[in-house]
């Protein structure tokens, strides 16, 4: 795969191996489904506490699978607009995902209340920066800032965009990116050369 990246006539090798990977991945989905049925099925049979939720999971999985694979509308595919699968996706799955994602806002509020203390100089700098970005990158903050006498003339949004986001933040992101990339090359090399084998669960 490395050689085909650099040598033109061998680029078909990369395509071939990618196809192999996709085929293996597809079979792995089956394994995952089997694991789900095993784990949750055992809990349903043993009627452990909360087994109702396990039943809901398995029923949802099965129903969605059936609608997505086997229930064809008059014309088209099971995943087309107006099908039962589409209804499930739009009215159950999407709202559930959006709701779960929106929980983050609440977690951020509680995490902020718990964790953002000016314990040290660095923490204070972090706090001040967080205030600036949080308050003055939203319309309400901009409106309030521009209403202030004198200081309101200063374009705080541009300052935040250019200096904080484009300057300090970008520098930090680049540093982490560089370090992580070098680390990635290193661990990839170790895996390829067989130096790193602990992910296989053995010492040989």
């Amino acid at each position: 795969m490395i050689i085909q990246f650099y040598i033109y006539p061998l680029d078909w090798l990369g395509e071939l191996f990618n196809s192999f990977y996709n085929i293996v991945l597809t079979f792995a989905f089956v394994l995952g489904a089997i694991s789900l049925f095993q784990v949750h099925g055992k809990k349903i049979i043993a009627q452990t506490s909360g087994w109702g939720y396990n039943l809901v999971l398995l029923v949802s999985l099965t129903v969605t699978l059936i609608f997505g694979l086997f229930v064809f509308p008059e014309k088209g595919q099971p995943v087309d607009a107006g099908t039962a699968f589409d209804w499930i996706f739009n009215n159950i799955f999407t709202p559930l995902c959006s709701t779960t994602y929106s929980l983050l806002a609440f977690y951020i509020a509680s995490a902020s209340f718990r964790a953002f203390r000016a314990r040290s100089a660095q923490a204070t700098v972090l706090l001040v920066t967080a205030f600036l970005v949080m308050l003055f990158r939203v319309p309400l903050g901009e409106y309030i800032w521009h209403s202030l006498p004198w200081v309101g003339q200063f374009d705080i949004t541009a300052f935040i965009d250019d200096w904080i986001m484009g300057g300090f933040n970008a520098a930090g992101q680049r540093a982490i990116m560089l370090g992580a990339s070098v680390g990635l090359v290193s661990i990839s090399l170790k895996i390829l050369l067989g130096i790193e084998v602990s992910y296989l669960g053995g010492n040989d």
């Binding site: 951020i108 509020a109 902020s112 706090l127 205030f131 949080m134 308050l135």
Partner: peptide, 12 residues
């Protein structure tokens, strides 16, 4: 955002 900022100030 303003509410979270208020919480941070309160926490401090």
């Amino acid at each position: 955002h303003f509410f979270v900022a208020f919480l941070i100030i309160l926490a401090n």
